[in-house]
């Protein structure tokens, strides 16, 4: 058994399902990037933060935008600065290395100790973007043509890639990844998650809140289903408002914290009607 296996076990702030924990460790052991997909608000980005925290490693974040080029992550050659320095005499112009600035991917290779690299929302970028990174992620090295140097990773960084499935990723890219789809947490896991954020929450209130929350999630017509972050906001609003568990069972106070779209409010109203006015959401799911 490899000795670095089973390193990641979650942190005090991030509850991880056993399956995800295994997958994270598999990706670390195999040295392959971990591709995480899942509904918004299931903690894809937070995963990388907490892998870094849990393992005590530095986190480098590369936020992908629609204009991001694969090359930007490797290095940027600052020609203008060099030109400026050559004119006004600042810095060593003859040494081109001073004007090569490593991007996030480049930095994650260049550091001596292992780091966690988060490539956030890779699907935002151009359709060719993942293909341009294939070799770099495979070999964990790249060539800087200006200095004729190869920058290779001394220790393979732990790469976490998140995607919202806005664009489909190329097969060649997928083949090199370890994939995990973060399922929406079930009530048991959700209780743990809420417990991390609100350790003092009244048990009875939590039970009512979760009953209500999963009832909402079962309504199919929502444009945007409420997710974990909305639930946490809602609980914080309920605590601030001093709402009693009985009230939550009977009506839906601060629904605005859960439902973000106007059309969804109408959907909710219709659902409340259907389930018979005020007494709703007390299905014996648990």
């Amino acid at each position: 058994m490899s000795k670095n296996f089973d390193m990641f076990t979650g942190t005090d702030q991030y509850i991880v399902s056993p399956a995800l924990k295994d997958v994270v460790n598999v990706s670390i052991a195999l040295g392959r990037p971990l591709l995480v997909k899942g509904e918004p608000g299931t903690g894809k980005t937070l995963l990388a933060h907490n892998i870094a925290r849990g393992l005590g490693k530095k986190l480098i974040i590369w936020n992908i935008k629609s204009t991001t080029k694969a090359r930007d992550g490797l290095y940027i050659y600052d020609t203008v600065q060099r030109l400026n320095d050559s004119r006004f005499g600042g810095g060593d112009v003859s040494n081109i290395k001073h004007y090569i600035h490593l991007g996030q991917l480049g930095r994650s290779f260049a550091t001596e100790e292992q780091v966690v690299l988060l490539i956030d929302e890779i699907d935002k970028a151009d359709i060719e973007f993942p293909n341009d990174l294939l070799n770099e992620l495979d070999e964990m090295s790249f060539y800087v043509s200006e200095t004729k140097e190869t920058i290779a990773a001394q220790t393979r960084p732990i790469v976490v890639i998140t995607s919202n499935s806005e664009k489909e990723l190329p097969d060649a890219f997928l083949r090199r990844c370890v994939f995990h789809y973060i399922d929406f947490p079930d009530a048991q896991l959700m209780t743990d998650i809420v417990g991390v954020h609100y350790p003092d929450l009244e048990k009875k209130l939590l039970k009512e809140v979760l009953t209500r929350f999963y009832w909402l999630r079962e309504i199919d017509n929502f444009r945007k289903k409420p997710s974990t972050s909305e639930l946490l906001d809602w609980i914080s609003a309920l605590i601030a408002g001093g709402v009693k568990p009985e009230t939550v069972a009977k009506e839906l106070p601060f629904a605005g914290a859960l439902i973000k779209k106007e059309q969804d409010m109408d959907v909710l109203a219709a659902a409340v009607q259907r389930s018979g006015g005020g007494r709703i959401g007390l299905r014996s799911r648990y």
């Binding site: 058994m1 296996f5 052991a29 997909k37």
Partner: peptide
């Protein structure tokens, strides 16, 4: 890659762990 992972003992001789291991390595879309 899966064979390598099994070889490294990542499946921990448990079928459940192997289930997730194989799924993560082989399957690339939910």
């Amino acid at each position: 890659a899966l064979m390598l992972a099994v070889d490294k003992g990542l499946a921990k001789s448990s079928l459940t762990t192997f289930y997730y291991l194989a799924r993560a390595v082989l399957i690339k879309s939910e």
